[in-house]
Simulated assay, not measured.
Amino acid sequence: MRRVRIIGIGSGHPDQVTAEAAEAIRSVDFVIAAAKSDDDRLLAARREIAARHGDPEVVEVRDPERDRNDPADYTGAVIDWHEARAAAYEQVLAERDGDAAFLVWGDPMLYDSTIRVVERIAERANVTFAWDVLPGISSLQVLAARHRIVLHEVGQPTVITTGRRLAEAVGQGAENIAVMLDGRLACATLADQDQWRIWWGANLGTPTEALVAGRLDTVIDEIRTVRAEAREHSDWVMDTYLLRRTSGSRSA
């Protein structure tokens, strides 16, 4: 039976591809890769990684647009988007023979839709395949390594959430928060910025990687500036950060 392999490829640097992932890339006949624009830098990075590891053909699929007109129905819009992706990828699998791979930024288990999309295709059974998932190095791992920190304090939990839900996590009393997918720098809207320390990173693992750390109220302007510079140099920016409430401001 043919295989579909979901392969985590790290946060951008080709050397972050694990030996297991590299072997998996070499084992497939082609890679299915979404293209979000005519000049998609992430697609280019996937092409580079594929070329380094066996050079399977990269089949470009135009990524369906996600409906962003109704923020209140975010979940419904994402479900529809996943369905559109499943249909597009299914068509490629139906038209081609051989084993296929998806090269997933970071790790497939963390804020990525590929597993859900492949599940949809498999459940419909219009094309038959076995599939597996190979882990990758996530941006949170790179963030912690770059700043030389542990993501949690001794015996304490860490909440992993999105920028869209940061205020909700703070309101629920979380004091150690890892934030991803924050296109609007939600930490800048917190009212008590002097009570938080931040370890921030943008475009981790790439030539435009940028890092800032310090008390949130004292470094937020620097983050804004560095973030804008990273976007200008790369035409895109993906940032990740850890927020930790300072010990003197924690509730009893």
Rank of each mutant, 00 (worst) to 15 (best):
A125W: 10
L103G: 03
S138Q: 04
W105S: 11
V142Y: 01
I137H: 10
A101N: 10
L134S: 09
A130D: 14
L143S: 03
H147M: 06
E119A: 12
H147K: 05
A130H: 09
R120V: 08
L110F: 14
R148W: 02
A122Y: 10
R124G: 03
T128M: 15
V118Y: 00
R116Y: 01
D132R: 12
R148Q: 08
S113H: 13
P108K: 05
V117N: 09
G136I: 02
M109W: 10
I137S: 09
R116K: 03
A130P: 04
P108H: 09
D132I: 12
I137Y: 09
A144F: 02
D107R: 04
F129V: 12
W131K: 15
I115F: 12
T114F: 03
A144K: 01
D107W: 06
P108I: 06
I149C: 07
V154R: 12
H152W: 15
H147R: 06
G136S: 07
G106T: 09
V133T: 12
A122C: 07
F102C: 10
L143R: 01
G136E: 03
Y111V: 02
V104A: 04
G155V: 15
V150W: 11
I121M: 12
V118D: 04
V118S: 03
R148L: 03
G155F: 15
D107F: 02
G155R: 14
V142Q: 04
G106M: 14
D112C: 05
V127G: 00
I149H: 05
V133H: 05
V133I: 14
A144Q: 00
H147Q: 01
V142P: 03
I121V: 15
W105K: 06
I149W: 08
Q141K: 09
W131L: 07
I149S: 08
P108Y: 06
A122P: 07
H147C: 07
E123L: 09
R120H: 04
T114M: 05
A101D: 03
V142T: 11
W105V: 05
V150S: 15
H152G: 13
A100F: 03
T114V: 08
T128I: 14
L110K: 12
S113Y: 07
R124C: 09
G106F: 09
D107L: 01
A122H: 15
V133L: 13
G136T: 07
A122K: 12
V104R: 03
R124V: 08
A101I: 06
V104Y: 04
V118K: 00
I149E: 06
Y111S: 01
R148H: 11
T114S: 05
R116A: 11
D112G: 07
D112V: 01
D132T: 12
L140M: 12
